[in-house]
Design a protein around this nucleic acid. Structure first.
Lengths: 157, 157
DNA sequence: TATTGTTATACTCTATAACTATA
DNA sequence: TATAGTTATAGAGTATAACAATA
């Protein structure tokens, strides 16, 4: 299909100079394409990448507090409030009073959240397989392994 | 050094569920770490990843119009106006009247932009090598190749 | 009519700082 | 004092839509 309206990673006739040799530029270009397709694929549910991550993490780690979720996701506390508000508005997540701390809330998926997460996860997996379909299974595993090595290397010596 | 204030890709004791198996999640995690270190490394120049890309592309492809730069960078025309304004405020880029079209501008680096780009590029390369230093040269080349394959695969069949 | 650059406006994701209610 | 959640505010970076000047 001719969709003139999405990112073209290499425009013919353009010299990208040093950018072509940078790992960070390659990561960024891949991320743009993955993000674009994720948003398009999940539009029916109003789910973005951070919202999906939050739903999965809450579902697998019941009883998380907002501050813990912020730490896990690497964002500020104020950001997690907005994220949880959005998922609450979608009917997917709820704040439950934390029994042992009256300042805090325990996060949990709603019944609707649990039910929809199954469909959402299937849509995300289909999207992810589409992104990876130019690679063999071995190459996909290798790519994940190399990326994880990059993510997990501390910045300073 | 103990810097408690940056992204921890794997918080101990947390179950990341399906996220661990997704290529898109691995790309995103790597991108967060690379972006974080890029911003910190380039702070002395006020340079962000899109600003660096724009400077390199303008320097290697003299006479680009704003609309062409927008197409190359995959952003809207309104976005490139803001980007060029920022680089103009930094004294790195200038709009020159396009001889053959009185609606348009040709973009060019200023003398200061050209001079600083050398230092900026050195800082970016040092940053990029730091990001990749847990990988052998072969692994780095392989990772770039696999990422490029992902970026260049069209989304639809 | 179509295109170039621009402005107005809005949305997402992020941050810092200050507040409140508890601990 | 310190922490949990919240609010206010701001700043990138993106988008769409409309506009004036020019093609």
């Amino acid at each position: 299909m001719h969709d003139p309206d999405h990112f073209v990673p290499h425009v013919p006739g353009i010299d990208y100079g040093v950018l072509e040799s940078l790992l960070g530029f390659a990561v960024r270009r891949a991320q743009i394409r993955v993000y674009e397709d994720f948003i398009a694929s999940l539009a029916p549910w109003g789910i973005t990448p951070p919202r999906f991550s939050a739903m999965v993490i809450v579902s697998r780690n019941p009883g998380l507090k907002l501050t813990q979720l912020a730490k896990i996701m690497g964002i500020a506390r104020s950001g997690v409030v907005i994220l949880v508000d959005a998922l609450e508005d979608l009917g997917y997540i709820e704040r439950q009073p934390a029994p042992e701390d009256r300042r805090a809330f325990s996060l949990a998926l709603t019944d609707k959240g649990l039910a929809d997460l199954a469909q959402i996860t299937a849509a995300v997996q289909a999207h992810d397989e589409r992104m990876a379909r130019s690679l063999s299974p071995d190459e996909q595993a290798l790519l994940r392994r190399l990326l994880t090595k990059v993510s997990d290397t501390p910045a300073s010596a």
